[in-house]
Amino acid sequence: MRDLRRWLLSLSGLAAFVAVWALAVALSSTHVVPSPWRVARGLAELAVTGALFKHTIASLFRVTWGYLLGVLLGVPAGLLLGWSGRAARTFDPFIQLFRPISPLAWIPIAILWFGVGDPPAVFIIFLGSFFPITVASMNAVANVNATHINVARNFGLSSYQLVRRVLLPAVTPDLVVGMRLTLGIAWLVVVAAEMIAVNSGLGFLIIDSRNAGNRYDLVIAGMVMVGLVGLGLDVVMRRVERFDGLRWSYGAANTADAAEGARP
C-alpha cells in the first residue's frame, strides 16, 4: 500500500507535466506544437520506418569513439598532472584555456582538418570528453588522502607499486564519477554537433524534421529519444560505480556525489 502510494507519487510529476502540455496545446489550438499523443505517434512512425534505430546507432557510434579516445588520453594525462607538480605548473594554464572553448566552436576547424562525416564529429566529441576527464583525474589525485601515500612510502613501495597499489585504487571512485559526468557531456555535444555538421544521428533527426516540413512531432520524438538514451547511459555508468571492486568508496561517496549534476 505504502509502496503503491510512493509509486504513484513518483509518477505524479511526469504525469502533471504531460497533462499541462496536452492542455496547453488543446487550449491554444496551436498547429505548430504537437500534443503528447502526436509525439507518441511520431515516435512510433520513426520506429516503424527504422529511422529511429538508424539515427540512434549513428549517435552512439560517434559518442563511443570520441569518448573512448578522450578517456584513453585524458585519464593518464590527468593522473600525471595531478601527481607531478611541475607538469601541472607547465600545462595547467593550457588546459584551463582550451577547456572553456566550446567543443562546437571547433566545428569549422574539425571540418577543415577531417573533412565531412564521422571523423570530425568524433574529433569534436573527443575534445568535449578530453578536457573534463583530464580535470576530473587531476582533482581525483589531488583528493587522495596524504596519509595513504605516507603509508605506502613507509612500507617501502616502489614507484610502480605505489601507483598500482595505492594511487589507482584511491582515485578509482572519483574517476568513475568523473567518467559518468563526462559521458553526459559527450552526449550533449554529439547532439549539437549532429545538428550542425553531419546528416545522420539524433541531432540531425531533430533539426532535419524541423527544416524539412516543420514536423515538430518528430522534433520532440527525437528529443525524447535523446533524453532516454542519455538517461540509459547515466544508469549504466551508475551501475559501474556500484560495482563490487569499487565498493570501498561508499563512505566517501557523498563528497563526490554532491557535485553531481554539476558537470565538470
Binding site: 588522502n145 595513504h148 605516507n150 603509508v151 612510502r153 617501502g156
Partner: peptide, 20 residues
Amino acid sequence: TGPDRRRIFVFQERGVLPWL
C-alpha cells in the same frame, strides 16, 4: 632521509586503506 619499512608509523586509524 625518508620513511623506511623497518620503522613503521601508526596513523591513528586513518592509515587503514579503505579499498583493502
